[in-house]
C-alpha cells in the first residue's frame, strides 16, 4: 500500500507564482523518503497541500489510501507533520501544548498525558514539561514539534527541515530517533538542507525544482550517477615540493593536506600502490563534499 500518492498536483498562488506544476509522486508504506529541492522549489507547498494548510488548484492526494477530497478528516488522522516554522503558542506550557494537540486528534486526556510523558522522556526534555515554550531553546522547541506530530501515532510522518538550526549532537540523536520510529513501521518523508542527513537516513529520494519533480529514484541508484568524487588526504609528514601522483588528479591544499579526484569506477586503494605516497604517512581520508550534495547541485543547475 502507498503511504502517499500524489497525482498531477498543481498550485498557483494569488501572486501568480506557479509553485507546483503537475507533479506526481508516490511513497511506499514503511519508506524513509527524502524530498529535496532548493529554496522556493515547491517542497513546502506540496507539504502544505498534503496537510491542508494550502489549497490545491488541481490534482489528487491520497494518504494511506484515503483521498483527501473524499475524507480529509480520516486522511489527516493518519498524518503527522513537523512544519519548518514553530507553530504553537509560545505562552503555553510544554506538556499542555502536546496534550492539547493530542486532544485535537481525539486522544483522551489520560492517554495523552501518558504518551507525552513517554516522548518527553525519550527526547530528554521531561524536566521542561512545566516551562512555557518561549523559555525553551531552538533545539528543545524542535523536539516539542516532533513529539506533537507523533502524539496520535500517525502512519505517515512528514518532517519539513526538522534539524534546521539544531546542533550536531542533537541532530544525531534525532536521526537515531527517526530511524527507530521508521523501523517500528512509520513511513517518513523528510525535507532537509543537510544533504548528508538525507543520504544517511533515506532509502528513496525525489528532487523537486521550480515546481517539477526532476528526479525520483532510490538513494543508491542516484548516488551511482556520480561520475567523480573528491577525497581529502591528510599526512603527518610534510608533502614534498611539487607533490604529484602520476595518473591522478591531485591538488595540494597545504603542507600536510592534498585532494584527489577519482572518476567513477576507479578505486582509492590504487592510489596507495603509488610510490609517491610511500614517502608520506597518511593520517586521515575524507570526502571533500557530501556525495549527494554534488549530485544535487548538478541536477538542480541542469533543470
Amino acid at each position: 500500500m502507498k503511504a502517499l500518492e500524489i497525482k498531477n498536483l498543481s498550485k498557483t498562488y494569488s501572486n501568480n507564482v506557479h509553485a507546483l506544476k503537475d507533479i506526481s509522486l508516490s511513497v511506499e508504506k514503511g519508506d524513509f523518503f527524502a524530498l529535496l529541492g532548493p529554496n522556493g522549489a515547491g517542497k513546502s507547498t506540496a507539504i502544505g497541500i498534503i496537510s491542508s494548510l494550502v489549497t490545491k488548484n488541481a490534482g489528487q492526494v491520497s494518504i494511506c489510501g484515503v483521498d483527501i477530497d473524499v475524507n480529509f478528516p480520516l486522511a489527516k488522522s493518519k498524518l503527522g507533520v513537523v512544519n519548518q516554522e514553530f507553530n504553537f503558542s509560545q505562552f503555553e506550557k510544554v506538556q499542555d501544548t502536546i496534550v492539547t494537540q493530542a486532544g485535537y486528534y481525539g486522544v483522551d486526556h489520560k492517554t495523552a498525558l501518558e504518551k507525552s510523558e513517554k516522548y518527553l522522556k525519550q527526547m530528554g526534555i521531561w524536566d521542561k514539561r512545566n516551562d512555557t515554550l518561549r523559555e525553551l531553546s531552538g533545539g528543545q522547541k524542535r523536539r516539542v514539534m516532533i513529539i506533537k506530530s507523533l502524539i496520535h501515532d500517525p502512519d505517515l510522518l512528514i518532517l519539513d527541515e526538522p534539524t534546521a538550526g539544531v546542533d550536531i549532537e542533537l541532530r544525531r540523536g534525532l536521526w537515531d530517533f527517526l530511524i527507530e520510529i521508521n523501523n517500528a513501521g512509520t513511513t517518513i518523508i523528510l525535507t532537509t538542507h543537510y544533504l548528508e542527513e538525507a543520504e544517511n537516513l533515506c532509502k528513496n529520494i525525489a528532487i523537486i525544482d521550480e515546481g517539477k519533480i526532476i528526479e525520483n529514484t532510490s538513494m543508491s541508484k542516484l548516488l551511482k550517477q556520480l561520475d567523480s568524487q573528491i577525497f581529502i588526504i591528510e599526512t603527518s609528514s610534510t608533502l614534498p615540493q611539487n607533490f604529484n601522483i602520476l595518473g591522478f588528479d591531485i591538488k595540494v591544499e597545504n603542507d600536510n593536506k592534498f585532494s584527489v579526484k577519482l572518476s567513477k569506477g576507479s578505486s582509492i586503494s590504487s592510489l596507495f600502490d603509488k610510490p609517491e605516497l610511500a614517502q608520506v604517512e597518511v593520517t586521515n581520508i575524507a570526502n571533500q563534499t557530501n556525495r549527494l550534495e554534488q549530485l544535487f547541485l548538478n541536477l538542480t543547475s541542469k533543470s
Partner: peptide, 18 residues
C-alpha cells in the same frame, strides 16, 4: 488572530477536527 499570528492555528487546521 493570536493563533494565526503565532501560527498555532496550524495545530488546529492540520488536525482532523471538522
Amino acid at each position: 488572530f493570536g493563533a494565526k499570528f503565532q501560527k498555532a492555528i496550524e495545530e488546529i487546521i492540520i488536525s482532523p477536527m471538522p
